[in-house]
């Protein structure tokens, strides 16, 4: 007969008397949790497929760029053109991942649990928005930075494009903010993830087609100025226009954009509209 070697003590219930951190901590933790979720981290393998594929695809131009720089001693892709060139990939990421950030909490009614804690609607929406913005920014900033490091290491005959790199990083932030606000606003209106994915991708397709059609028709009618405005219907060209006017970079659409603060004002209005819709949506969800 063996003697028991260990004893399990029932120590009963223990109270917690450690620190209770501020609202800011909770919001940061939520943002971090959502950011990890946006890339499928901490979730089943199935959820990692799309974000990982997208991230890998976004790195492709960087790899090609570095290879071309090393072998042919010339720069194939300007920094500031990355987002517009890769817009379909970014749109797929936005469509696939923005519903993940908002839909399950609505569908499975987890939202009341957040709101029964020291977390307000604004904290919640803010955390989700920051998470998606950072995720999108990383998708653009990481390849840009890799190309930049490549350019620094490979000795090209042309001087290093410090200015273009910084402008592209600034532009990426504007891209991320605008896309995240539109994606979340569209996705938050349905608790079904599939519908959310469909609505975001449909929105992108619509703007893509509408801007191309208007641009073509107006250009053939000789209305060059109106054509330049109409191309801004596509959010990617809208932000590119802001980037061109703000940082003086080369336009990626080949034709140029309307000058001045017009595009920037439109971009700000779109962001404000999307974020207000998002906030109002959640205030309504919180009351029910």
């Amino acid at each position: 007969m063996t003697q028991p070697t260990g004893v399990i003590h029932d120590i009963g219930y223990r109270h917690y008397d450690g620190v209770r951190l501020s609202r800011g901590y909770a919001a940061t933790a939520l943002a971090l949790h959502s950011l990890r979720g946006a890339f499928g981290l901490g979730r089943p393998a199935r959820s990692k497929i799309i974000p990982f594929l997208v991230a890998a695809t976004m790195l492709l131009p960087a790899v090609v760029s570095i290879a071309v720089m090393a072998l042919l001693k010339q720069q194939p892709l300007p920094y500031t053109g990355l987002a517009v060139t890769m817009q379909a990939v970014l749109a797929v990421f936005l469509a696939a991942q923005s519903p993940y950030l908002v839909a399950p909490d609505l569908r499975f009614r987890v939202l009341p649990l957040y709101l029964s804690r020291p977390v307000t609607v604004l904290d919640y929406v803010g955390a989700k928005f920051v998470a998606l913005t950072v995720a999108l920014f990383l998708l653009m900033a990481v390849p840009l930075t890799l190309i930049y490091i490549g350019e620094l290491l490979v000795e090209l005959e042309t001087p290093v494009h410090h200015g273009d790199y910084l402008a592209a990083m600034g532009g990426s932030l504007i891209f991320a903010v605008l896309l995240a606000s539109i994606g979340l606003a569209l996705a938050s209106f349905t608790p079904r993830r599939g519908l959310g994915v469909a609505s975001v991708i449909a929105f992108y397709m619509f703007t893509l087609a509408a801007s191309a059609v208007f641009f073509g028709v107006l250009l053939s009618e000789g209305l060059d100025n109106a054509a330049k405005w109409s191309i801004l219907i596509n959010p990617f060209f809208l932000v590119d226009a802001v980037q061109v006017n703000l940082f003086g970079t080369d336009p990626s659409n080949g034709e140029g954009y309307p000058p001045g603060f017009g595009p920037a004002a439109i971009a700000l209005a779109v962001i404000a509209l999307a974020l207000s819709a998002l906030f109002l949506r959640y205030r309504k969800a919180a009351a029910s």
Binding site: G18, A26, G42, L113
Partner: peptide
């Protein structure tokens, strides 16, 4: 204060441990 709602309120794709840890953080616990 703690609150247990009447309705279902749990996400299906995370484990109980992960979910409860997350909710504790939302209450300000490190």
């Amino acid at each position: 204060v703690g609150y247990m709602p009447e309705h279902e309120c749990l996400p299906p794709d995370v484990s109980a441990t992960e979910f409860v840890v997350h909710m504790a953080q939302m209450s300000g616990l490190p």
